[in-house]
C-alpha cells in the first residue's frame, strides 16, 4: 500500500517560555489522503494551529518538535531549512486566517503569486506573471490581468482570500493546509471560499487539512475530523459518525453548544462551563476532566490514551468512559 499523502505520528511541540516549558501539542497523529479533507477542530489554545505550523515547519523561536511528519512517505522532521524550502510551498501549501495581513502590503498581488512560482520553477518573470494571472482567473477573480497589478488593500476580504488560495496553489501542491481560512470573512463569502476550496480539491485531487473552530465548516467540508483539546487529540472519526454519535464528552459539549432550529427561542444555549486548561501546568489526568460532566476519580489521576472505538471505522477516542456512555445511552 502506498504511503498516505500526509502522515503525522506522535507529534509533540514544546515551547520554552520564561515561565516554563509548554507542551502545546502532545502525541497527536493523523493521516490525510489525496482528495480527502481532514477537519481539525478545537478552541483557542487547543494546539490546532501549532499542529499545522509544525507540519509546515513554520514554527519559530524556542520550539522543539518531536515525532514524525511524512509527506507521501518523505520524512519532513529533521530536514534542513533549505531542504524543507523545496517542499514547502511546492508540495504543500498553506493559507491563513487573515488574508490582509498575510499578504505583503507593498507588493502587488500578481507579484506575490509570481515570486512564489519563480522560486520553485525557476521560470522567467513573464512566465511567472502569466501564471499569476491564470491562477487569479482560476480562483474566480474577474479581470485577473488587471487585478494582478493591484495591491492587497485594493481587494475585498473575500478576494484577498481567493488571491491567497491562488498563491498557495500556484505551484500545484498535493496538500493544502487551511488555517481558519474563513474566520475573518462574512458568512456569504465564507460559503464561497469553502466552495472554491472544494472545487479546486476535486479538480486537483488535493489533500486538505481544514483547521477551524467552526463545526458548521467541518460538517460542510470535512471527510474525517480530529477534535483537539489541551494539545491532544481527544477524538478522531469520520464526519458522519462524529456528528451522529460524538463519543468524547468534549465533542458532545461542542455539538450541544450549537444553536438548533428545533429548540424554543427563549431556551438558553448550552455551553461548556469552565475555561481551557493551562498548558504550563498540565494535570496528570485527562485535560478535560475539570470541565467534564462525566468525570470520575479515575479521570483526574490517569490520562486516557486514544483507543479504538465503535465499529472498526478507525475511530479513536481518548476517554475512560467513551464506551460506557454509549452503552448507557443505548439502554435509555
Amino acid at each position: 500500500m502506498a504511503a498516505p499523502l500526509l502522515e503525522v505520528r506522535d507529534l509533540r511541540v514544546t515551547f520554552t517560555t520564561p515561565r516554563g516549558t509548554v507542551r502545546a501539542v502532545d502525541s497527536v497523529g493523523f493521516t490525510v489522503e489525496s482528495g480527502r479533507t481532514l477537519g481539525i477542530v478545537g478552541e483557542s489554545g487547543s494546539g490546532k494551529s501549532v499542529t499545522s505550523l509544525a507540519v509546515m515547519g513554520l514554527h519559530r523561536g524556542a520550539v522543539e518538535v518531536g515525532g514524525s511528519v511524512a509527506l507521501a512517505g518523505q520524512e519532513l522532521t529533521g530536514l534542513t531549512e533549505r531542504e524543507l524550502g523545496k517542499v514547502r510551498g511546492r508540495r504543500m501549501a498553506m493559507i491563513f486566517q487573515d488574508p490582509l495581513s498575510s499578504l505583503h502590503p507593498y507588493y502587488t498581488v500578481g507579484e506575490q503569486i509570481a515570486e512564489h512560482f519563480r522560486v520553485h520553477f525557476r521560470s522567467g518573470r513573464a512566465a511567472a506573471r502569466r501564471r499569476a494571472v491564470d491562477m487569479l482567473g482560476e480562483v474566480g477573480i474577474p479581470e485577473p490581468a488587471r487585478r494582478a497589478g493591484e495591491y492587497p488593500h485594493q481587494f475585498s476580504g473575500g478576494m484577498r482570500q481567493r488571491a491567497m488560495i491562488a498563491m498557495a496553489l500556484a505551484c500545484e501542491p498535493e496538500l493544502l493546509i487551511a488555517d481558519e481560512p474563513t474566520t475573518a470573512l462574512d458568512v456569504t463569502v465564507q460559503a464561497q471560499i469553502l466552495e472554491l476550496i472544494a472545487r479546486l480539491q476535486q479538480e486537483r485531487g488535493l489533500g486538505v487539512v481544514m483547521i477551524t473552530h467552526d463545526l458548521g465548516v467541518v460538517a460542510r467540508v470535512a471527510h474525517e475530523v480530529l477534535v483537539m483539546y489541551g494539545g491532544r487529540a481527544v477524538e478522531q472519526a469520520p464526519v458522519d459518525a462524529l456528528f451522529a454519535d460524538p463519543a468524547h464528552p468534549y465533542t458532545r459539549g461542542l455539538l450541544d453548544s450549537l444553536p438548533r432550529l428545533d429548540t424554543a427561542d427563549d431556551e438558553p444555549l448550552p455551553f461548556i462551563p469552565g475555561s481551557p486548561p493551562s498548558l504550563l501546568l498540565p494535570a496528570p489526568g485527562c485535560a478535560f476532566a475539570p470541565r467534564c460532566p462525566r468525570a470520575a476519580e479515575r479521570c483526574t489521576g490517569e490520562r486516557p490514551e486514544p483507543a479504538a472505538y465503535g465499529d472498526g471505522t478507525g475511530r479513536t477516542v481518548a476517554c475512560h468512559f467513551a464506551g460506557v456512555r454509549a452503552v448507557e445511552e443505548a439502554a435509555r
Partner: peptide, 15 residues
Amino acid sequence: PYIRTARAKGMPERT
C-alpha cells in the same frame, strides 16, 4: 503574518 506567508511559500530565508 506576511513574513510567515513568504516562508510558507518556500522562499529562501535571504529573500
